[in-house]
Amino acid sequence: MPVSRPLVLIPSYNTGPILPTTVAAALEQDVDVRVVIDGSTDGSPALLEPLLNHPRLRVEVLPKNAGKGSAVLHGTRAALAEGFTHVLCMDADGQHPADLIPRYFGISKIHPEAAVFGRPVFDASAPALRVNGRKVSNFWANLETMGWGIDDSLFGMRLYPAEELVRVFESTCFARRFDFDPEVAVRLAWRGVPIVNLPTPVRYLTKEEGGISQFRYLRDNTLLTWMHTRLFFGFLIRLPWLALRGENPLLSYSPPVL
Rank of each mutant, 00 (worst) to 15 (best):
V59P: 11
V61W: 05
L62W: 03
P63V: 01
P63T: 10
K64P: 06
A66R: 15
A66S: 13
G67K: 01
G67R: 01
K68R: 09
G69P: 01
S70V: 10
S70K: 08
V72T: 09
L73V: 09
L73H: 08
L73T: 06
H74D: 07
R77C: 05
R77N: 13
A78W: 14
A78G: 02
A79R: 07
L80F: 04
L80N: 06
L80C: 02
A81E: 15
A81T: 09
E82I: 02
G83M: 04
F84S: 11
T85Y: 04
V87G: 13
L88P: 04
L88V: 05
D91A: 04
G94T: 08
H96N: 14
P97N: 14
D99L: 05
I101R: 11
P102T: 02
R103A: 14
R103Q: 13
R103G: 03
Y104H: 03
Y104C: 01
Y104K: 04
Y104N: 01
I110H: 13
H111W: 11
E113C: 09
A115R: 14
A115C: 07
F117C: 10
F117D: 04
F117E: 05
G118Q: 12
P120C: 00
V121E: 14
V121K: 15
F122A: 00
F122T: 01
A124T: 14
S125Q: 06
V131F: 14
V131C: 06
V131G: 02
N132W: 14
G133K: 08
R134A: 11
N138Q: 08
F139I: 12
W140V: 00
N142Q: 12
L143K: 10
L143Y: 11
T145W: 09
M146E: 10
G147L: 05
W148D: 13
W148M: 09
G149M: 02
G149E: 02
I150V: 10
D151E: 12
L154A: 07
G156I: 12
M157L: 11
M157G: 00
R158I: 15
L159N: 02
L159Q: 07
Y160S: 09
P161N: 09
A162N: 13
A162V: 05
E164S: 14
L165E: 09
V166R: 09
V166G: 10
V168M: 06
F169S: 07
F169M: 13
F169C: 05
E170A: 10
S171C: 09
C173W: 13
F174C: 05
